[in-house]
């Protein structure tokens, strides 16, 4: 299980959502990499019971996700997925459009 994020080919900064120029080094050549899991930083529960979270992943990148399964507490690590129906186990869904897997260089 993993979710796709953008990586700068030059300085290896991880970015999400995808950028046009790297905000760190200014280069415009990117690849995509798979992020396996993230650490729950904050959660919020909506009126319909949906639990959304801010997750930190390696490199300081922060993603907004929907948590499924038993809602983890802040500080816990959860597997990331781009699949909205990834199963009932604890995971964090990160939506991406279908074309994001293409190499963006």
């Amino acid at each position: 299980m993993s979710a796709v994020v953008q990586e700068c080919r030059n300085c290896r900064s991880l970015l999400f959502p995808a950028r046009l120029f790297c905000p760190v080094c200014g280069e415009d050549s990117f690849s995509t990499v798979a992020a396996e899991d993230g650490t729950v930083e904050q959660t919020t529960t909506l009126s319909d019971g949906t639990v959304l979270a801010t997750l930190g992943i390696n490199g300081g990148l922060r993603l907004i996700a929907r948590l499924t399964g038993s809602a983890p507490e802040p500080g816990q690590r959860v597997p990331l997925t781009n699949d909205p129906v990834a199963g009932s186990g604890a995971n964090a869904y990160i939506p991406i459009p279908p074309n994001l897997n293409e190499d963006q260089s």
Partner: peptide
């Protein structure tokens, strides 16, 4: 914007309340 269309609305998230909820917690 495109980031909302691609990465937030499908969560689903309808508007910025959830984002500012987490900001408020911080």
């Amino acid at each position: 914007n495109r980031a909302t269309q691609d990465h937030l609305a499908p969560l689903p998230m309808n508007g910025p309340n959830a984002l500012f909820a987490m900001l408020t917690t911080r």
